[in-house]
């Protein structure tokens, strides 16, 4: 699929996602993650960031895409917006490492290599950050993410309402992003 067609597909997936289509959203994030990985790997290749650290940036960027998706203007293509997010996260990461935060990411360019073995590699930052959540919230995040349970199943198991589980999940994701941010200050 060429770049333009792919961007058009992402754009329509994100529109559906914002309208509440969970399936479209999952597909979009799954398609974006290898692209983010490719961009981060190439951006970091020249500055000596270890390969295994790339995944932390990918996850940080995915969290930001999630929590900031209301800043995407639905009349614009999604690709440049995604690139702006990942560029910001790469700059933050380099700054944290005490390097000059200059990342050559062209907002209109998002080629990526097809390989995608890294999706199964653990990133450590989120893991560490999860440790800071309260026991119950950590349980909720892990059940839904790692064990792939639905919010309803988790709600039943914990004797909570489904809405309460969703709220707890959202707050926990925000807390994850905030903890990432704290490390940068």
């Amino acid at each position: 699929m060429d770049r333009k067609a792919r961007d058009a597909e992402w754009t329509s997936l994100m529109r559906s996602a914002i309208a509440g289509d969970q399936g479209a959203y999952r597909r979009l994030l799954s398609e974006l993650s290898p692209v983010l990985r490719g961009v981060a790997r190439r951006g970091f290749a020249g500055v000596g960031v270890p390969r295994e650290d790339v995944e932390d940036v990918v996850q940080d960027a995915l969290l930001a895409i999630h929590l900031k998706r209301h800043t995407w203007d639905q009349t614009m293509p999604l690709g440049p917006w995604v690139m702006a997010i990942v560029r910001n996260k790469m700059i933050d990461d380099l700054r944290r490492r005490g390097r000059r935060p200059e990342v050559p990411v062209d907002l209109n360019e998002f080629e990526f290599e097809g390989e995608d073995q890294q999706a199964s590699i653990d990133a450590h930052d989120v893991e560490r950050v999860l440790g800071r959540l309260s026991g119950k919230n950590r349980d909720i995040v892990q059940s839904i993410s790692i064990d792939g349970q639905s919010a309803r199943d988790v709600a039943q198991r914990l004797g909570m309402s489904e809405v309460a589980v969703r709220v707890a999940l959202h707050r926990s994701l925000k807390a994850l992003a905030d903890t990432y941010q704290e490390k940068k200050l």
Binding site: Q22, S145, R166
Partner: peptide
């Protein structure tokens, strides 16, 4: 945590989207 696991959590939170930023501004 694996990236695919994180995506599970994000997808489960699909309905939490905030109002468009231009409106908030």
């Amino acid at each position: 945590m694996k990236t695919d696991d994180l995506i599970n959590a994000l997808a489960a939170d699909a309905k939490s989207v905030e109002p468009p930023i231009a409106r908030t501004v």
